[in-house]
Amino acid sequence: MNLSAPTADQPAAPVQRLAPVETPTQRVIREFSRSWLAMFGLVVLSLVVLAALAASLIAPQNPYDLMQLDILDSRLPPGSSAASGMTYWLGTDEQGRDMLSGILYGLRISLGVGVASAVTAALVGASLGLIAAYAGGRTETAIMRLVDLQLSFPSILVALMILAFLGKGVTNVVLALIIVEWAAYARTARGTALVERRKEYIEAAECLAIPRWRILFRHLLPNCLPPLIVIVTVQIARAIALEATLSFLGLGVPVTEPSLGMLIANGYQYMLSGKFWMSFYPGVALLITIVAINLVGDHLRDVLNPRSHS
């Protein structure tokens, strides 16, 4: 046998130089910033959030202060001037409220309701999901049956049911949104936790006798986070849309402090007479917000999905 059989001293094929080590966070940021569409969404979203946060500073008028409203200025088309000299760039509603100010303040409520419900639902749902994955047995069965039951009914129906029990109002809407949303987090958290728990790095950590809580929070939780982060973004968008829908149906926030959905509902009756701006512009604001969140969430899913990069 004198073929090209190798010997120990024969050099192996040249080893390729490895790229500098990159942390996962750096990778996500790099890959995320590669999509101009997602970056555009992120910029728009940041502007929307800033505008909502600074509503009281940049709005021409405080729309909740009835003293500032002039009933004589009601239902003016966009671009009209007020008696006081200010311009209603987006027109006014039936109470003479500046639409631009109303939208900025409404954005604040819509975003607040969306974020508050999504984050609370995430905390509740993810905890229950992790508990289900760890406890197993009857606890797991009970929680997951509840999740299945919840998910087999569409969100609007569950929300309607809860508002029918509790009555209208902001707190009840937030509560309804949390109850609508928690199941998605629970299912995802349990699913990822079950998968991650079987992986070698957890076994390795267990072999090293690392304390259980440390394995849970330092090893397992970070690896379960990516899908949860994606769901949070998507759910915030869904919550905002659902809140707007409920408010539009007259089941949501009170008329005195209208969210975007309420503004649209208020202007709805004037639409048939051609006074479109009262419903149209709040709708555009709603749309921009939701699309921006979805653009970011959509791409975040691609970047965070462990299957999409090898």
Partner: peptide, 12 residues
């Protein structure tokens, strides 16, 4: 060729 080392082609 039992017992003898199996030959291989080095590299890939």
């Amino acid at each position: 060729r039992r017992g003898s080392r199996l030959a291989q082609i080095p590299g890939m």
